[in-house]
């Protein structure tokens, strides 16, 4: 399948900061997550992809259209939900979304029908006739999402859609985004500074930091099985650990569990024999999976991932913050 978004050496330099630095990536159709700390260049990238901001150098294509020459075509085919508040408080959601549909060229009747349908899909019902000024944050986010979807785009850019939502609201929003990608058949580029939430809904995740590409790959690749075996026994964790260590296994404790490097198949037999010999109750034995958030882990004991040290050394870009949304 051709990529929905492809960039080549994209750079964006402002007088004092470099927002994007030689960014080359390709994102397949589906739900694509764009992760990075605040200030990593996510919003700038979206503005460039919308053709609103000409890049300093490099180029990009959205849905196979060139951002420099076919910006108008692109803006016909995509929807955009900004990160910031963008709703006038004194009109109703219906009035506003109908207007935005007409701005995409939908005739009056179609605009009204699509607005009603879309507001229903995002979960706004009777309240859509009241002025937006009285809405909760969750309802506002839904209106913002509805205006991005109302003209039935082929691709939507969702900039931090879970910002400011409580956990329940965040879950609903994430569910909605997954439905947009998989049921509505609209490709999604969703940004977040929280990895955990993107891991749950994305097919593909792009990680950028300081305007540079850290990784771009399918979400399974981040979570593939690691070479570590997790073993949990009811009691006598240390006994088993010592027993395994004496027989040459590379093992270390972590919480209530033992982490054992899988050198070859015999490790499984060793654990079985050790548990039997020491008379321990084996609760769990599984191959550990990676989490995307490990990308940002800096502690040396965590599972190895291919990130150069100090990759997240920039100001405000702490691994702690990025892991915050993980569950």
């Amino acid at each position: 399948m051709p990529p929905i978004i492809a960039t080549r050496g994209l750079s964006m330099r402002f007088p004092r900061v470099t927002a994007l630095d030689d960014l080359t990536l390709a994102a397949p159709p589906g739900v694509v997550g764009l992760v990075g700390a605040n200030g990593a260049g996510k919003s700038t990238l979206i503005k460039i992809l919308l053709g609103l901001l000409p890049p300093s150098s490099g180029g990009a294509e959205v849905l196979g259209l060139d951002i420099a020459r076919q910006g108008d075509e692109i803006r016909r085919l995509v929807g955009f939900m900004p990160e910031y508040e963008c709703l006038p408080p004194d009109v109703s959601a219906t009035e506003f979304v109908v207007h935005m549909a007409r701005m995409c060229g939908l005739p009056p009747t179609a605009a009204r029908e699509r607005a009603a349908d879309t507001l229903r899909h995002v979960g706004l019902y009777e309240e859509r006739y009241r002025p937006i000024g009285g809405y909760s944050t969750g309802m506002r986010q839904r209106v913002k999402l509805a205006q991005a979807l109302v003209h039935d785009p082929r691709l939507v850019f969702l900039d931090e859609p879970t910002n400011g939502l409580d956990p329940a609201g965040r879950d609903e929003m994430l569910g909605l985004i997954r439905r947009i990608g998989h049921e509505f058949g609209i490709s999604v580029l969703v940004t977040s500074h929280l990895l955990g939430e993107l891991e749950r809904i994305c097919d593909h995740v792009v990680v950028i930091d300081g305007g540079r590409l850290l990784r771009s790959q399918a979400v399974e690749a981040y979570t593939e099985a690691s070479g570590v075996l997790v073993v949990e026994v009811d009691e006598g964790r240390d006994d088993l650990g010592r027993w395994l260590h004496e027989r040459g296994a590379a093992v270390h404790p972590e919480g209530r569990q033992l982490m054992i490097d899988i050198g070859d198949e015999t490790v499984y037999d060793l654990v079985r024999d050790g548990s039997a010999e020491l008379g321990l109750r084996l609760v769990r034995m599984e191959q550990r999976r990676h989490h995307i958030e490990e990308l940002f882990a800096t502690a040396p004991h965590s599972a190895p991932v291919a990130v150069e040290p100090g990759a997240f050394g920039g100001p405000g870009a702490s691994g702690e913050e990025l892991r915050g949304g993980a569950r």
Partner: peptide
């Protein structure tokens, strides 16, 4: 100034306006 103040303007220009 209403649409400038409430940041609605970008929604126009992210469309074919």
């Amino acid at each position: 100034s209403r649409e400038i103040r409430f940041h609605t303007v970008p929604l126009y220009f992210s469309r074919p306006v």
